[in-house]
C-alpha cells in the first residue's frame, strides 16, 4: 500500500528496481518514503549492489560500496531518486 505518491522520476526508478530484482510486487506499491534495506522493501546487500549496477547502466551514476553517505542515499526510493537525478550523466 503506497502511503506517499511517487513522482514521475521515482516511478521510473521503482520500475527499474522491481524489474532488476524480480520483486514480487508492482512498482507503484513501492512507498517512496519507506526504507529500501531490510525493513520496508526487505532488500539485502546483494540487492543493493544490483541496484547500484542498474543505476550505473541506466543513469551513468556510480554508487560506490565505500561511500560514507550510502545509508542516506539508499535510505528510501525518494532519497535514492534525488541522488540519481542530481548526479545523472545520461
Amino acid at each position: 500500500m503506497t502511503t506517499t505518491a511517487q513522482s514521475a522520476d521515482e516511478s521510473r526508478l521503482a520500475a527499474l528496481i522491481v524489474e532488476a530484482l524480480n520483486l514480487e510486487l508492482a512498482p507503484q506499491e513501492v512507498d517512496p518514503g519507506a526504507p529500501l534495506y531490510r525493513d520496508g522493501l526487505g532488500l539485502d546487500s546483494i540487492d543493493i549492489l544490483e541496484i547500484a549496477l542498474v543505476i550505473s547502466k541506466t543513469y551513468g551514476v556510480q554508487l560506490k560500496a565505500d561511500d560514507a553517505d550510502n545509508a542516506r542515499i539508499f535510505g528510501s526510493l525518494r532519497s535514492l531518486c534525488d541522488h540519481v537525478q542530481q548526479h545523472r550523466t545520461k
Binding site: 530484482l21 546483494i46 549492489l49 544490483e50 549496477l53 550505473s56 547502466k57
Partner: peptide
C-alpha cells in the same frame, strides 16, 4: 562494452 557483472548472476 559494459562488463560490470550482475551480483545476482555471480551469486
Amino acid at each position: 562494452d559494459v562488463r560490470d557483472l550482475s551480483p545476482t548472476r555471480f551469486h
